[in-house]
Nucleic acid binder design. Structure first.
Lengths: 343, 343
DNA sequence: ATCAGCACTCAAAATATGGGAGTGCTAACA
DNA sequence: TGTTAGCACTCCCATATTTTGAGTGCTGAT
């Protein structure tokens, strides 16, 4: 397949922009006029024909204008879309709004999700941090009844994680106290991932002789059960007001997509390797047969590890020039916030 | 306004049932035939006319059949609807499903919500227990940094509530320990409501002389900030698949209703005084101008106090004969569960 | 009271009709 | 060889128009 000429790129870019703006198939005559091209509609038709054979455009029916294919959008996003500069969009208030948000991390993520949705007028989505990457600051054990102990982990970001531990025999307060101290000093500064894979094993050797009352096995079990990663979605109603979505197939597709949060989490995980904003256009969300929906997402970090994902879901015909910088900016904002909290 | 005759009731009941089943306006001829009434369509028309003047039925337009008004539904639900017996519906598996559910109370409520939604094929909704009514079992204080102490409250239902407390000067472990003990022994067995309104005041007198390191003021502040009552909604996608809802006005109405969870919580609070299942039909949800949506809800108890609310939201044209017993049954199930946990 | 009969109503489905925006092709031109 | 005008053809879409059928309301007889 031959390469795309300069002029074809130019045309494709304008067609995609025009289609994103109007939602109507782009026809040669009015298009040439509107964009003041110096070529005739007939020539435009030839170019369009070529772009169609290259797979970037398609026809709803014989005598309709052209609309971009998923491949067309992809090419646009990768090579043609000059994103707005964040300072040109009035996203200034995001920061303020964000700073006013809740202290509780969960609530903070919900308000980020709402913010993404209200600014983009699409659906916002956030995958909460993978607990593996959260760094432990302190550990406490508290007895809550004869056979249960509460394991409290305070993370460097100030989040408190509780896990109940079932033990076989009653332990004294003193033992809880000393065990807390040991766990605190051994775990502090390490991520839960480190602890699972490394620290616990080392501790096994170190304390092999001593007669522990609360076995490391039980602690390990508790640590392994810390794996909740929530998905928050907000702004579904925005999506329902978008004309594109009225087509039943597309709406169903969207609903099926957000229905199973497990799947959604999995899809979002795919951005985890990358440091930049990722777009998943239509069929590229290949998990299920998604039609007409796209996902724009990026990771945020804790420390210098990618910890979670945030982004926007909407119709494939969305304004990537605005959505991409929004997601990018928000991602950095969350990253900064999380590192400022866990100083 | 005169009373409703026996025969009129009979007819109204069948009309509502027929409309609930088919969703199409009920006309005299086919209706008489289908329900084997021994009267002619003309007579039926007279009865319908009377029911319309009484305000129970209406016309979409001159030559259409009759559909129930909100008042008609109300009369049906209150006097005419013989609910299915729970044992006739195959809700048997609910109990099992329920028992297999999570240990964490939050998760338990989410799975109840999902269950309500999947059985009713509508949206399930749960208002989590008002923390005021939860009974404290134990209190612990843990220092997490020089100026912050974590207040941990273990409730009788096994839920753990965390609150961060900011203190002015560093306190020693011993002081935390003894304060924990005091708080535990004073609070244990009382509800958070009792503590707020009563216990703290009494403690103030009792310990007025002693030089407390952690002031009661700070504890009171923390107690007062325990007021999160979450609203869980699941199964929104069910609603979107219901033909009635495709009408834009109704769908928007529904979405606006569930969008602001604060409002929703307030509406659900209204069932708090009652021990039986409550229905809110269409305009009876008068908070905002809701069209075509109904809420069926009931309270569940902790101890013998109404603590929270659960129910189902859907189109006004829902099968109350099934939904009401479902909500009723589920409410009792949750009540039982909560009392079994907090023995 | 009940009911047959009849004129009338109205939404919804089916069926035209015209226009407009578009394509694809061809032949001529620079 | 790329560009363009011209033209036949396509097909959606919005707008009327017609038809159909289920329904009502009324009246007068039983």
């Amino acid at each position: 397949m031959r390469a795309v000429t300069e002029r074809e790129s130019e045309v494709l870019k304008s067609i995609v922009q025009e289609y994103i703006a109007t939602g109507r198939p782009v026809g040669s005559r009015s298009f040439v006029q509107k964009y003041s091209f110096t070529i005739s509609p007939a020539t435009m038709r030839n170019i369009m024909y070529d772009l169609e054979s290259l797979g970037f455009l398609t026809h709803p029916h014989t005598s309709a204008g052209r609309i971009p294919t998923d491949t067309g959008y992809r090419y646009f996003v990768d090579f043609l879309s000059d994103s707005y500069d964040i300072s040109d969009l009035d996203y200034g208030y995001i920061r303020d709004d964000f700073m006013r948000s809740e202290v509780h991390l969960d609530k903070m993520f919900i308000s980020i999700t709402k913010m993404l949705s209200s600014v983009s007028k699409l659906a916002g989505i956030v995958l909460t941090p993978n607990p593996d990457f959260t760094v432990v600051k302190q550990v406490e054990l508290v007895s809550i009844d004869p056979e249960t102990v509460l394991l409290i982990i305070v993370t460097r970001t100030g989040v408190v994680i509780n896990k109940k531990i079932t033990i076989s025999e009653r332990v004294t307060r003193d033992i809880l106290f000393s065990t807390s101290n040991i766990l605190s000093s051994e775990f502090a500064g390490f991520s839960i991932f480190d602890i699972k894979t490394d620290i616990l094993a080392k501790m096994r050797q170190k304390y092999s002789g001593s007669n522990e009352q609360i076995s490391l096995d039980v602690v390990e079990l508790a640590m392994n059960s810390i794996n909740e990663q929530d998905v928050f979605i907000e702004g579904i109603e925005n999506i329902l007001h978008i004309p594109d979505m009225i087509e039943k197939e597309v709406l169903t597709s969207f609903l099926r997509l957000i229905e199973e949060k497990k799947n959604l989490a999995e899809i979002m995980q795919r951005t985890m390797d990358s440091d930049s904003v990722q777009t998943f256009i239509g069929s590229e969300i290949d998990n299920s047969y998604v039609v007409g929906c796209s996902l724009v997402a990026c990771c945020y970090k804790i420390g210098n590890k990618n910890a979670g994902v945030l982004g926007v879901i909407g119709p494939t015909r969305m304004d990537y020039r605005k959505v991409v910088p929004l997601v990018d900016y928000t991602g950095r904002l969350v990253t900064n916030f999380l590192s400022s909290v866990s100083r």
